[in-house]
Amino acid sequence: MHPLRRKRLIIIIAILLILSSAVGLVMFALQQNINLFFSPTQIASGEAPQQATIRAGGVVVEGSVKRDPQTLYVSFDVTDYQYSMTIEYLGILPDLFREGQGIVAQGSMMANGVFKATQVLAKHDEEYMAPEVSDALKNAQSKRVTVTESALSY
């Protein structure tokens, strides 16, 4: 073979080899590590697989958070306003976790219909403010008024 051709062939083979092993690696890793999302309704209707790692989410039901007095174990219900499901978690919940707040949990369904979470994520929406912010805003305003008042009285 012409030496230039041969060299090109070697380069192309090397590239193909690297690419194909990378593709194989990617396929393998993707198969292992993608997590489907299910809503409480989908889980109630039995769509979610058992024992597989999935994500589930909804709004935390008011008054449903129960804590174990000895450990960091916690359980709470989430709902999509149609069905609710119970999530159990051992660990520290995120700062933004609150009743009435949307959360996403990663974990798996157990045979008793409880979702065992390995990770709980809470999302905070920046677009619009939670109602409570108003009070704070008002407080800040009234505080400002009192500051000026007290400044005047001096």
């Binding site: 306003y81 677009e127 619009y128 109602p131």
Partner: peptide, 14 residues
């Protein structure tokens, strides 16, 4: 905010 909870709102405006 009870009606808001029933409607499932997450903030305002919605």
């Amino acid at each position: 905010g009870h009606f808001g909870v029933d409607m499932g709102i997450t903030g305002a405006p919605e």
